[in-house]
Design a protein around this nucleic acid. Structure first.
Lengths: 240, 240
DNA sequence: AGCAGAGTGTGATGGCGGTCACGAATCTAA
DNA sequence: TTAGATTCGTGACCGCCATCACACTCTGCT
């Protein structure tokens, strides 16, 4: 079955091939069945907004496929991208648990498959099962951890170059091919968005990339970025 | 009974007069009794380090009395103060739940009374009681919320002035005397530490204070700061 | 093909704030 | 009281990067 946006819809969490080690998906069958009963599966196109910073929490969103941009913005229009959420992660968890407004805005950056659970259903689900509740606590810890990294990156660095280097290293470590000396990255974000991730301006990002190309540290073909000299990047990232 | 550092030790959580609405203390008597059995109460002097960023998680610390400085630091020696923790809050929760190293360093800034619970005991305690587990999830949400605010403050502002104004407003709103036009604050932190909270240099903080005094926005007597013109502060904080 | 519209490259300019350097003031300990 | 250590106040300098302005390149679209 094909959804409107060319994604294959997964009917049941119990038989889902995507599961693997996704944090929220490896529950015992009985819990998974309860989850199955309260979730709504939806497909979204690129650019869809799941929720907006400041909204009352409607519930949680589990990303099954695709990636979602989480951003925080200020009165003056400036925006910080907090995280790019990958499949298996949960969105709106903290807001849903605590009842506070959503902390950030979630927008899909490619076609996505998402499971939604209404707040009341989710809270009931939590309180019925310690195991689930503990999983949630773990996920929240994870989120806190990420936020701390964000604080570190924003607060402890100086040159924008440093932050960009760090970001590239993070991305390349996620793409796991540490066997090869050269890592290839598909850049899904524009310079503008990268700038928002590291708290600088678009022009600076462009200039930094130009500089790195000149110094043979990276190299780009279309939207693919090749890291030729990871050591140099680490040098830029670590200090000064 | 007096502890080494002049703090009255509270023997039992069940009869503790400090409890009130402290998040972690208002459990049903049965849970509180279990907690009572696994906690160790300790008094610390000013400047004691409860744990250090990067350490394996030994367990959680509940602050009963006094305040604790939570900071994150970088290789280059720079430090960001993430939060000043007040009584009733829990430290090391995220690390203890997830098993990751502590995110930050915790250091007392005055004599403190602290309950410690070993990781294994705490995890058992959690898994025995959904209610407790849910409370922990709430606390973690709270922490995540704070971290997000930190990100907002570090990432979305430009002038250091803006950040300082925001910090002062936050402090004055915590000191609650919103009835009076003038708010008095006891500054427990040095300029250096304030600088670390807003991600700037000590000299800048000093200069900003000097400027604010000149403009009649604040006024200081010893370690007491009087806010004479909160409106102007809000103006500085909001935009620009 | 050809035209938006988004995204990218690059120069010029100016200001914020980091850093250094030192002296004044306040606190702490014998 | 005096010595020493923190903390605070302030000037001088200068580098990073935000901002503005505009040209160029690459999409997709009809």
């Amino acid at each position: 079955m094909l959804s409107p946006y060319g994604i294959e819809i997964v009917e049941s969490c119990l038989t889902c091939k995507l599961r693997a080690d996704r944090v929220f998906c490896d529950l015992p069958p009985s819990s998974l069945q309860s989850f199955q009963n309260i979730k709504y599966t939806t497909a979204y196109p690129e650019g869809a907004v799941l929720f907006v910073e400041g909204q009352e929490p409607r519930g949680i969103f589990v990303v099954c496929k695709g990636s979602v941009k989480l951003s925080i913005s200020a009165a003056n229009g400036k925006t910080v991208i907090v995280k790019i959420v990958e499949p298996g992660e949960v969105l709106g968890l903290s807001a849903t648990v605590s009842g506070r407004p959503y902390e950030a805005t979630a927008e899909t950056i490619d076609p996505c498959l998402v499971n939604f659970v209404k707040r009341e259903d989710f809270l009931r689900f939590l309180k019925e099962d310690v195991q689930v509740c503990f999983k949630v606590a773990e996920q929240l810890s994870e989120k806190y951890h990420n936020a701390c990294n964000e604080v570190r990156s924003l607060g402890l660095s100086h040159s924008a170059a440093e932050k960009l280097a760090r970001l590239l290293l993070e991305w390349s470590s996620k793409n796991g091919d540490s066997t090869k000396p050269e890592v290839r990255l598909k850049l899904k974000l524009t310079h503008e968005e990268i700038a928002q991730m590291i708290g600088t301006s678009r022009e600076t990002v462009t200039r930094l990339f130009a500089d790195m190309k000149k110094r043979q540290i990276v190299q780009s073909k279309g939207s693919t970025l090749v890291i030729r000299n990871a050591a140099a990047l680490r040098g830029m990232a670590s200090q000064n």
